[in-house]
Simulated assay, not measured.
Amino acid sequence: MKKLIVFIMLVSGTFQASFPQNSSCRNITAVSQVVIMTEEEKVNHLIDYIRHLSGSVFIRNGKEYSPEKAADHLLSKWKKHKKKVKTAQGFVERLATYSKTDEPYMIRFSDGHMEKCGDLLSLELQRIEI
Rank of each mutant, 00 (worst) to 15 (best):
Q16M: 13
D102H: 13
Y65C: 07
G118T: 03
L120Q: 03
L53G: 05
I107N: 02
A70R: 02
E93Q: 11
Y49I: 01
I36P: 00
I8M: 08
V11T: 10
L10S: 08
K82M: 08
I36K: 15
A96H: 05
M114W: 00
R60G: 09
N27V: 00
I107Y: 02
S99L: 03
L75D: 11
S110N: 11
S32G: 12
H81A: 06
T14P: 05
L123G: 14
Q89W: 03
S54K: 14
Q126M: 12
P67K: 05
D119F: 07
F7S: 12
A70Q: 01
L46C: 07
A96W: 08
N22C: 02
D119A: 09
I36E: 15
A71N: 05
F15R: 09
F19V: 11
K42R: 15
S76I: 01
K77Y: 03
I28G: 01
R127I: 07
R108D: 00
H52S: 11
I8H: 02
P104W: 00
L121Y: 04
T87Y: 06
S32T: 14
M9G: 01
E129A: 10
V31E: 13
T14C: 10
V57G: 01
I128W: 07
V35C: 10
T29N: 13
M1G: 13
V35H: 13
V92T: 03
R26H: 06
T101K: 13
M37T: 01
I36D: 07
V43D: 04
S122N: 10
G90I: 12
